[in-house]
């Protein structure tokens, strides 16, 4: 009787379609990834408006102030209140002046939570005005509906 030699064959599925798909997925996520999202803050949910368009040129010398729902202000990772914000703004202004620009060149970008009290936003503007800042941008989400 002839005995067949039993060669242990490695069962290998065809990996090509899977690798194709995985590379497609990687390409998709790579294209959509946006590292420049440092401007956003998890505590801020912006209100929306149909009229705004994303700016074609970025604002010069932006000072980004996040106003959370409870009125707390976040500037450069530090928390401030309307009373202590002056200190934070002065630091930012010092940087702008060191670059040879004046305070009037700076743009204060206010990213306030949609449910925050309007008075808190006004207080932020008032404190900034006291530091001779005069250009403000109220940031809102684009609403395409």
């Amino acid at each position: 009787m002839k005995v067949k030699s039993k060669k242990v064959d490695l069962a290998e599925g065809d990996l090509t379609p899977m690798i194709d798909m995985v590379f497609q997925l990687i390409a998709f996520f790579m294209v959509l990834i946006n590292f420049a999202q440092t401007e956003s803050n998890d505590r801020v949910k912006l209100p929306s408006s149909q009229l705004v368009k994303p700016p074609e040129v970025p604002l010069e010398f932006p000072i980004i102030l996040h106003v959370a729902q409870d009125g707390e202000i976040i500037l450069g990772g530090d928390d401030y209140t309307a009373e202590t914000l002056r200190v934070g703004l002065q630091k930012e202004i010092a940087v702008i002046k060191a670059e040879g620009k004046t305070v009037e060149d700076a743009n204060v970008v206010i990213r306030a939570h949609k449910d925050t009290a309007a008075g808190d936003v006004q207080e932020v503007i008032r404190v900034a005005q006291e530091q001779k800042l005069e250009n403000f941008a109220l940031r809102v989400k684009e609403d395409n509906s």
Binding site: L46, Q129, E134, F136, A137, V140
Partner: peptide
């Protein structure tokens, strides 16, 4: 890595307000 760092970007715009003291 890409799936975890993925975040849908919402387009934002500004209302400019010029308000000197």
């Amino acid at each position: 890595f890409f799936v975890m760092t993925f975040k849908i970007v919402e387009l934002e715009g500004d209302f400019s307000v010029r308000m000197p003291l």
